[in-house]
Amino acid sequence: MTQAVAIDHHEPIENTSTGLNSRKLMMWAFLGSDVMFFGAFIATYLVYRGKSLVGPYPSEILDIPLTTLSTFVLLMSSLAMVLALHYVKDGERNKGTLWILAVVVLGAIFMGFQFYEFREFGHLGLTPRTNIFGTTFFILTGIHGAHVTIGIIWMGFMAYSSHKGALRPDNALDLEIAGLYWHFVDIVWIVIFTVIYLISANDGPPPGMESMITH
């Protein structure tokens, strides 16, 4: 019988064949689906890495300190998310609401960074039409930004729900599922930060085309 005791003692044993909650199982399956979605975009980026025929090239345009800051913000929003879930599960409604709001605010700051970055790149002459770097960069980060935006709306709804007292320990699963989505968006950014920003930060023109840089 000991095996049957749920791993997390806050949660009731589910009345299903596997003992797992159906909605949570579906969320994980959906995240598996989203892995393929982002995987295809990231693979496209990597295939086309360093194949831009005209500038601006990543080395001329990427602002690593700025992006480090926005990465840190998104990482901390994940921390806020997991703390919010903890407090909601413990029935500490006010703390829970505050931490959910923190997620919303941090997510909004991240989107602000992205908006600023897109504008800056536009001023520096990089658009999705400029070169293949612009194409792959804007579409990938834009799709990620759309995911974050959906997450912010979802979290805003959760904060409202928690504020009204409709989010309680017994239905904290609602928040947990939203949180899974949020964390997933965060890990996608971990990959994007590494492959687009850090790894590509020194990418210049393709070999043999250095002479064509226009400063």
Partner: peptide, 30 residues
């Protein structure tokens, strides 16, 4: 669940190529 997202990616890339002039499948743009 695992394959259809890839079709969505293909569709989005082709669509942005067609509408917004990106270069996913355009050899002139890399």
């Amino acid at each position: 669940v695992l394959a259809l997202p890839i079709l969505a990616v293909a569709g989005i890339q082709l669509q942005t190529d067609r509408i917004y002039g990106t270069h996913f499948f355009n050899s002139l743009g890399g």
